[in-house]
Amino acid sequence: MSQLDPNSTKIRIPHTLSPGCEIVGILQRTSDTKEASSSSRKLALILHGVLGHKDYLHQKLLARSLPMDSFRFDFRGNHETAGEWSMAAFPRDVDDLRVVSKYLREELNYEIDLIVGHSRGALVSNWWLSHDEEEIRLNQVRKVVHLCGRYRMERIHDKDPIYDPYFNKSLAYPWAVRVASKPLTVNVTAAQIEEFASWDNSYAKTKFPKEICVLNVGAGRDTVVPPWDVFLWQREWQGRIGSTTMHVVELADHNLVGHHPEIVEMICGWNELVDREGKAPPVWDPALVAASSTSSKL
């Protein structure tokens, strides 16, 4: 472990499924207490998207704003966690999540209470929650925030005009980005795109845990994930015991740039409301938090 600020600790988790690899993450505490607790404590898990990292977008601000400890990490092949990057490594990302969850529970006495996933991170957490019943039972996950998650995976082919000039020549597409303020180029292959497009999210209707409350957030100006996908997720999550609350940030892009404080405030307000009331309404209204807080004091 290495020290960052009084309440943040960088942790390197040995990857039990990938010898020699360590998953690098940040444990953010709500106080400067460093002593391990003998009883389980609630934790929020914060997950990044494609070619993201543990400190980009809203993640650091959210970690410092939540009323519970949190952990955010780099998936394999991203930023400080070693490994080969792939456009379509969803099963590998799920394995990373399993390793992290087990470590947090067995070594640090945490139970995951809340998961906040952006884009790819949202898809990975949804699949994990829907298929690893024993792990979910041990963690007692109660709340999920789903930010800009793609539902129709086949719509990745909307970008074929960009990819095809390379794929038609049996070449990989060189995707140039900036990660943690540094330039990076990764290769996207035709096989990766086909594997990505074949990922099926329809399991969510029948396998996603019925008791978990969900905050389902879309972006009105998203050019990466079609904005309509937020409604498709909302459709799949209807009729469950846990509430599903939808909100669309009308002027936001896929990364919610310019809206991070608003997003963090919404997540914290929704979390507070669900903790107090056990549910939230179908459409998000920040006034509900104040109203609920006032009524609880009467």
Score class of each variant (00 low, 15 high):
residue 112 I to V: 14
residue 295 S to D: 03
residue 192 Q to D: 15
residue 33 T to Q: 14
residue 144 V to H: 13
residue 242 G to H: 13
residue 65 S to E: 06
residue 282 P to R: 10
residue 153 M to L: 13
residue 288 L to E: 14
residue 255 N to C: 10
residue 189 T to M: 04
residue 292 S to L: 00
residue 250 E to T: 13
residue 8 S to C: 13
residue 68 M to V: 15
residue 42 K to W: 06
residue 229 D to F: 04
residue 8 S to N: 13
residue 59 Q to V: 03
residue 79 H to G: 00
residue 40 S to I: 03
residue 183 P to D: 07
residue 130 S to F: 04
residue 121 G to Y: 11
residue 109 N to H: 15
residue 50 V to R: 07
residue 228 W to V: 12
residue 266 M to P: 10
residue 144 V to L: 07
residue 271 N to C: 03
residue 290 A to R: 12
residue 180 A to M: 04
residue 109 N to A: 12
residue 115 I to S: 03
residue 227 P to I: 14
residue 37 S to K: 04
residue 128 W to L: 09
residue 4 L to Y: 07
residue 199 W to Y: 14
residue 85 W to L: 09
residue 230 V to A: 01
residue 24 V to W: 05
residue 284 W to A: 00
residue 98 R to G: 11
residue 40 S to K: 11
residue 58 H to V: 03
residue 177 V to P: 00
residue 182 K to Q: 14
residue 237 W to I: 00
residue 163 Y to M: 04
residue 61 L to P: 00
residue 179 V to H: 01
residue 251 L to H: 14
residue 186 V to H: 02
residue 174 P to R: 06
residue 182 K to E: 15
residue 231 F to H: 12
residue 271 N to L: 03
residue 112 I to P: 02
residue 24 V to M: 01
residue 29 R to G: 06
residue 237 W to E: 02
residue 112 I to F: 08
residue 200 D to L: 05
residue 3 Q to K: 07
residue 215 L to R: 10
residue 96 D to H: 09
residue 135 E to N: 08
residue 19 P to L: 11
residue 149 G to P: 06
residue 242 G to T: 12
residue 295 S to M: 04
residue 89 A to N: 15
residue 100 V to G: 05
residue 6 P to G: 11
residue 105 R to A: 11
residue 84 E to S: 08
residue 101 S to T: 09
residue 94 V to T: 12
residue 152 R to W: 04
residue 43 L to S: 10
residue 215 L to N: 08
residue 6 P to E: 12
residue 30 T to F: 06
residue 71 F to W: 01
residue 283 V to G: 00
residue 268 C to A: 13
residue 204 A to V: 15
residue 215 L to K: 09
residue 75 F to Q: 07
residue 262 E to P: 00
residue 284 W to N: 01
residue 168 N to P: 00
residue 262 E to G: 04
residue 55 D to L: 07
residue 94 V to E: 13
residue 88 A to D: 15
residue 71 F to D: 01
residue 45 L to P: 06
residue 85 W to D: 02
residue 278 G to F: 12
residue 265 E to A: 14
